[in-house]
Design a protein around this nucleic acid. Structure first.
Length: 905
RNA sequence: GGGGGUAUAGCUCAGUUGGUUAGAGCGUUUGCAUGACACGCAAAAGGUCGCAGAUUCGACUUCUGCUACUCCCACCA
């Protein structure tokens, strides 16, 4: 097998581009429903469709890396994988964006163009610039089936939306009504409750007097944050149980504004009025406040809308305020109250104000005619999570879900926008009460007018899991597309908890309503990516790093690795570029270790796990071989456990520490001695190959590019094949293969290595303390602890000498007094003959400190063992362990005391 | 007002069903060209596990209360 040698440096950009194009050219990510069988089960994820206007940010990196890891791992486990990608038309965001461009380039508004021409512009924009994010996801390495990319305004998808609208309308879930909605004065559309963010706002609470019409000279004082709405007041409300005000119920108050129309308005009693708030007197503005609207309904009050859709005051607000912006009108009306001598006081006050999620302006509660949806399949959707049939990870989000599902409010689904799915409803021109609702326009189109509104973007998103798979409401089940039959319901959904109401809950309801089952089996909620100070990423703060820059600088694998290592399940992620650096360093380490493997000797037959195992000779394996094989088996097992628990950070961490600490820092180092030995080299290399091969497979989902590159360069796979088609052996399978070869991992050997590692560390430390850290010619004397310790050292003498930089290690019996600096190791007291070089003061300090530590441990241990309750109640193995520990600690202490004595000589 | 979450080394976080002397990465200090890697190697310093109780032979771990920070939900104008 001709091997290409591994270059000195890893060029991530080059490697990533090369492999991504190869994967695509070979249709690696294409899901084929025909391939799904009992032996090859389906695994599917639908991507949370990013906005078509979106650009990749760290949140996407986190979210999509997780999805990619899940998909790639599933492929290695022999599953047929569908990761279905696409984008969302994002109604408001997209429309606003194109409108802005239009304004900038041509100074025109959408109305100047008209609906059709404007929509053409949006489509044109979408075609040219939309979906940039798709290419960015490719840079990240996402293994989506790009041949099935969907858009929420695809023809077929749009058809689905129309059909389910009609379906829900006919079932009576959708209705039209005049109701209080959240109105965005900037985007000029209604919004759902979920699109309104409550934010604290520092303002004033204004107290003003209002005169009782029937008792001139008597005033009530009202506290309000919104004096500009006084002209819209149609009543004054007090709590009927409030002794201060009961007597006024039924009388009237003189509304001070508008000045030219100071009408008497009724004083009503309503239980919703709080005694304690303000003065206990409430002004009722049914047209501009949700609570007030309800009070108005209960008392049949007049509804006076004093504002225009854009948030300016209209003529009903009076001539002083008309035309004014609502916030200017607030200031002006306060001035007017002052002029009238009615303003009592104004005090600073902080309350929560609803802000439009998109336009970032305060929303205005407004009465308007809109389409509403009463949620379908609520009970089923609620039960599946409550019963644990559908699993949330972390589980606690199910509480949030349950809470929201328990308090469902009807969903305002109509939007006064142009970009989106047009509502499939027509109104009769002659008879407005006649409504036509269907997927196809009425036959006598000239007599009808279609509703100008479009549907909320989320009204299309909630069908995403099945509408993307070619679902058609009118097809009988057996005629449904194979894709849907094989890959639906999906396996996992990976998304942020911030859209649990917007999207997740609604998808579950849609799933039950039209497919009769849940749309996914598991939902993994990621954390939110924040900066290293814990703040949310935002454009204005400028704390949002550009993932593409990071990829260019460090590589996509490094970004993925670094992000996943710091992303614990259910916890927010604090982004720090240092993490990406760590990922880059890891890739570099991996690269070099592989390079070293290649430089160390012949590659031999690496074509399969069996072939590699066949190269291992059990008779030539030493304790280190056993320990590292034990390590790779454990790693394999741990990885699958972490996967099953969606603990990607633990999985990443496990890979990191095995590779760096166990494989590179120890195994490769100790194996260097044996590499020089002709007879042993082949065996050592075979074991390295086994480890590297298995490691790369386990790692590949996380860092697919470098894993694939090295897998090929090391000859673990034939030209033209791909890592993803390899079989990932389980821990048991590896053990089975080794046993068949006559190799049973020896637990004693594993323990022996742990002792040796300790010994080496202690000995190196001894050298370091005595300024001999770099010397390779030290003369050591080891007072061996016992026979077995002696055997261990003898067995491993060559590599030990090399590891600690010894010219010789002389054995003396335990207890022998030695000269020079000494330290305690698990194998005995080792002494370094460096008389004259020893820093006695520093050594004394160090040993004294060690002694103090041991004394503490002995005190605690003695107290514990002598405690009769402990002896009586603790399980035997714990008791034995404690006794043994105490004895060892005491022995250690004795040695240290001796060493200290030697030093003072 | 209701409901989550978090609190462990200077920083970011691990810590499995309670059980020997609480770990990692970064940062810091010291030394180092040792067969791949200075994006590296070796050694080291650094922790009353937020506070107060309770349960237990034994608590970073379980329970109760408290404090701080944080997120979500809610029609106190």
């Amino acid at each position: 097998m001709a091997q290409q040698s591994i270059p000195k440096n890893y060029e991530s950009t080059q490697v990533e581009e090369l492999w991504y194009s190869r994967w695509c050219a070979a249709d690696c990510f294409k899901a084929d429903p025909e391939r799904v069988t009992a032996a090859r089960p389906a695994y599917s994820i639908v991507i949370p469709p990013p906005n078509v206007t979106g650009v990749l940010h760290m949140g996407h990196v986190l979210n999509n890396t997780i999805q990619d890891i899940l998909c790639r791992r599933a492929r290695l486990e022999g599953k047929e994988v569908l990761w279905l990608p696409g984008t969302d038309h994002a109604g408001i965001a997209t429309q606003v964006m194109v409108e802005k461009q239009l304004k900038k380039a041509e100074g025109k508004t959408r109305h100047d163009l008209g609906r059709e021409a404007f929509l053409e512009r949006v489509w044109q924009w979408k075609k040219e610039k939309g979906g940039i994010i798709i290419n960015q996801l490719k840079k990240l390495g996402c293994s989506c089936d790009w041949s099935r990319e969907r858009f929420t305004m695809d023809e077929a998808y749009t058809r689905c939306i129309q059909k389910i609208f009609v379906d829900l309308y006919k079932k009576g879930y959708i209705y039209r009504g005049k109701r209080m909605v959240n109105w965005c004065p900037a985007s000029l559309t209604a919004l759902s409750d979920e699109e309104v963010i409550m934010e604290p706002h520092k303002g004033f609470l204004y107290y003003f007097k209002i005169e009782i019409a029937e008792e001139r000279g008597t005033f009530l004082t009202i506290a309000t944050t919104r004096p500009e709405t006084i002209p819209g007041d149609s009543a004054i409300a007090v709590n009927p149980k409030d002794p201060r005000y009961q007597k006024y119920i039924g009388k009237h108050a003189l509304r001070p504004l508008p000045f030219e129309n100071q009408e008497p308005i009724p004083i009503v009693g309503d239980e919703s009025v709080e005694f304690e708030f303000g003065t206990g007197v409430l002004k009722v503005t049914p047209a501009h406040d949700k609570t007030d609207f309800e009070i108005g309904r209960r008392h049949h009050l007049k509804v006076t809308d004093i504002m225009n859709p854009d948030g300016t005051m209209n003529a009903l607000a009076g001539k002083d305020l008309a035309g004014m912006d609502r916030f200017k009108a607030r200031t002006r009306s306060v001035e007017m109250l002052k002029e009238l001598g009615l303003l009592v006081k104004e005090e600073p006050y902080e309350n929560k104000v609803g802000i439009s999620e998109r336009a970032k302006v305060p929303i205005e509660p407004r009465l308007s005619e809109q389409w509403f949806l009463r949620y379908p399949s609520v009970a089923e959707a609620r039960a599946c999570v409550a019963d644990g049939v559908m699993k949330f990870h972390p589980e606690r989000w199910s509480k949030t879900y349950e809470h929201w599902m328990g308090g469902l409010q009807d969903w305002c689904i109509s939007r006064q926008l142009w970009w989106g799915h047009r509502i499939p409803v027509w109104y009769n021109k002659q008879d407005a009460s006649k409504i036509y609702c269907d997927v196809t326009p009425p036959a006598d189109a000239e007599n009808w007018e279609q509703d100008p509104d479009v549907l909320d973007t989320w009204f299309s998103s909630w069908l995403w899991p099945f509408a993307t798979m070619g679902w058609d409401m009118d097809l009988p089940e057996e005629k449904m597309p194979e894709l849907l039959k094989k890959f639906y319901p999906t396996t996992d959904l990976v998304t942020g908890p911030d859209i649990i109401f917007f999207w997740v809950a609604r998808m579950i309801m849609a799933g039950y309503e039209w497919r009769g089952e849940m749309p996914f089996k598991n939902v993994y909620f990621t954390g939110i990516v924040r900066d290293k100070l814990g703040r949310k990423m935002s454009k204005t703060l400028g704390n949002s790093p550009d993932p593409l820059n990071l990829i260019a600088q460090y590589g996509a694998d490094a970004l993925r690795f670094g992000t996943m290592r710091s992303a614990p399940l259910g916890q927010d992620v604090l982004f720090d570029e240092k993490n990406v650096e760590l990922g880059r360093n890891f890739c570099n380490k991996l690269w070099n270790a592989s390079r070293f493997r290649q430089m160390s000797g012949e590659m031999s037959d690496n074509s399969s796990l069996d072939a590699i195992v066949a190269r291992i000779d059990p008779a030539l394996c030493d304790a280190d071989d056993h320990a590292i094989l034990d390590g790779i088996v454990r790693l394999t097992r741990d990885c699958s456990i972490h996967f099953a628990n969606y603990e990607f950070n633990a999985y990443t961490q496990a890979l990191y520490s095995f590779f760096w600490n166990d494989f590179c820092d120890w195994y490769v180092e100790v194996a260097k001695t044996r590499l020089a030995d002709e007879k042993l080299r082949g065996n050592v290399l075979a074991i390295q190959d086994l480890c590297l091969r298995q490691f790369l497979l386990a790692l590949a989902p996380l860092t697919p590019f470098i894993a694939e590159e090295l897998y090929h360069l090391l000859g673990y796979i034939a030209e033209g094949q791909f890592l993803q088609d390899q079989q990932l052996a389980t821990a048991e399978e590896i053990l089975g293969l080794l046993e068949k070869r006559g190799l049973k991992i020896d637990g004693n050997a594993v323990a022996e290595i742990s002792q040796i590692r300790d010994f080496v560390t202690q000995t190196r430390a001894l050298k370091s303390h005595n300024n001999a850290g770099t010397r390779r010619d030290c003369l050591f004397v080891l007072a061996v602890k016992d026979v077995s310790a002696k055997e261990i050292v003898e067995r491993n003498l060559a590599k030990l000498k090399s590891l600690v930089g010894a010219q010789s290690i002389e054995f003396v019996p335990a207890g022998t007094e030695t000269s020079g600096a000494s330290t305690l190791t698990p194998l005995g007291v080792i002494s370094l003959d460096m008389t004259g070089l020893v820093d006695k003061e520093a050594e004394t300090k160090r040993l004294t400190k060690e002694l103090e530590k041991l004394d503490k441990a002995i005190a605690a241990g003695t107290a514990k063992v002598n405690n009769p309750a402990f002896a009586a109640k603790a399980p035997p193995h714990i008791l034995e362990g404690a006794k043994k520990q105490l004895a060892e600690t005491q022995a250690k202490r004795d040695e240290i005391v001796k060493l200290l004595g030697n030093l003072s000589k």
